[in-house]
Simulated assay, not measured.
Amino acid sequence: MKSLKILAICLCLGISMSYAQQRGGNVDPATRAKTTVEHLTKELGLNKTQQDSIYNYILKQTEHQKAQFEKNKDKREDVRAELQNERTKKQEKIKSFLTAEQKAKYEALEAKQEGRGFQGRKN
């Protein structure tokens, strides 16, 4: 009976860990860029030129971020601070591709996301 309880606990832990890894841990840069552009296209009505420009920019930034994390695994907090600064630059660069109406919608999206804090995206 005791071994059955231990087996059940191990099974639950295994399922929990598997689910946590599937929720978006290590998404490759191309997938992250594609998902971001799809979201922005849905929310802002991006045209094809804007989609391509933003995709290429986000892909480059995401690859850079991934490289920074891998290179400085032992200095996570330093990298996070640097990447937070880059996030601000990324937001400004994205705005440079948008029309005035889209910029207003994008700023509203940013405010909404900042209000969510560190919860991340809901799947």
Rank of each mutant, 00 (worst) to 15 (best):
S3D: 12
L4C: 00
L4V: 07
K5L: 08
I6N: 06
L7G: 09
I9F: 10
C10A: 15
L11C: 14
C12D: 02
G14S: 03
S16W: 14
S16L: 11
M17V: 15
M17N: 15
Y19H: 10
A20P: 12
Q21Y: 13
Q22I: 00
Q22F: 07
Q22Y: 10
R23H: 05
G24E: 09
N26C: 00
V27H: 10
V27K: 13
P29T: 12
T31R: 05
R32M: 11
A33L: 02
K34S: 11
T35I: 13
T35W: 06
T35K: 14
T36F: 06
T36H: 02
E38I: 00
H39G: 10
L40E: 00
T41H: 04
E43R: 15
G45R: 00
N47R: 03
N47P: 00
T49H: 00
Q51H: 07
Q51W: 03
D52V: 03
I54M: 06
N56I: 03
Y57I: 04
Y57E: 12
Y57F: 12
E63C: 00
H64D: 12
H64Y: 15
Q65D: 11
Q65E: 15
K71E: 07
K73I: 01
D74P: 00
D74V: 00
D74T: 12
K75N: 13
R76F: 14
E77I: 03
D78F: 06
V79K: 02
E82K: 15
L83Q: 13
N85W: 01
N85D: 14
T88G: 11
T88Y: 11
K89V: 11
K90Q: 13
Q91R: 12
Q91M: 13
E92L: 13
K93M: 07
L98S: 00
T99N: 05
T99Y: 04
A100S: 14
A100W: 01
A100I: 06
E101A: 13
E101C: 02
E101G: 07
E101T: 07
A104D: 09
E107S: 09
E107D: 15
E107K: 03
E107T: 04
A108S: 09
A111E: 07
Q113F: 08
E114A: 10
G115N: 08
G115Y: 01
G117M: 04
G117Y: 05
F118D: 15
F118T: 14
Q119Y: 08
G120A: 11
G120Q: 06
G120C: 08
G120S: 08
R121H: 08
R121E: 08
K122C: 06
N123S: 06
